[in-house]
């Protein structure tokens, strides 16, 4: 139960202020969508490409194999308990054609669109995401900081991604307070 809550909170934090409902929609439903404004975004995001600003017994330069140069997020779900950790987060993601616009949904969705009858945020997925040495490690830790006394960390799994990922379609975010 607590882990579910943690996952929920994590997702909420990542999306920060938006609450989203993900739904796939087919072309006929898209035909009900009106409005041509919006913005087109292209660019990239890179994390700790050359390491971060911390230099201590745990964090350091990427050229130093004994140190971690990626970023770290740690979460404590129980008072005085251990920490869930995403560690050594680094790499870059490049994209062309992420779009953002406001859409009106007033039909489709099996009749729910007519009931909703309001505007939503549409994020047009960019088609291709290019991952370049993107990696992170999922772990648990005994202390809040990795240079604290008594620090112990158990690494559960590591993820590394390089190459292109195809993402097509739209992400619709429905405001439903």
């Amino acid at each position: 139960m607590m882990r579910s809550l943690v996952a929920l909170v994590f997702l909420a934090f990542i999306s920060f202020v938006v609450r989203a409902e993900l739904a796939s929609i087919d072309d006929s439903e898209l035909a009900d969508v009106t409005g041509q404004s919006g913005v087109y975004l292209s660019g990239e995001v890179s994390i700790n490409e050359n390491g971060g600003p911390l230099a201590n017994g745990y964090f350091g330069d990427c050229a130093d194999a004994t140190k971690v140069c990626g970023a770290r997020i740690s979460v404590q779900t129980e008072q005085n308990g251990g920490w869930f950790v995403l560690d050594n987060i680094r790499g870059s993601i490049a994209f062309e054609g992420l779009t953002f616009q406001i859409r009106e949904i007033n039909s489709g969705f099996g009749g729910d669109g007519a009931l909703f009858n309001a505007q939503v945020v549409e994020i047009g997925l960019p088609g291709t995401l290019r991952f370049d040495d993107f990696e992170y490690t999922l772990a648990t830790s005994s202390t809040e900081r990795p240079d604290d006394p008594g620090f112990q960390q158990v690494e559960i799994m590591g993820v590394e991604m390089s190459g292109d990922v195809t993402l097509e379609g739209n992400l619709l975010i429905f405001p439903t307070p």
Partner: peptide
């Protein structure tokens, strides 16, 4: 109720390069 008793982000160096233009 407290859901999380501590949340820490450490050692971040994030660069983004975003260009915004008209959507056709």
């Amino acid at each position: 109720d407290t859901l999380i008793y501590g949340l820490k982000f450490q050692n971040f160096d994030v660069t983004s390069d975003i260009t915004t233009t008209v959507l056709d």
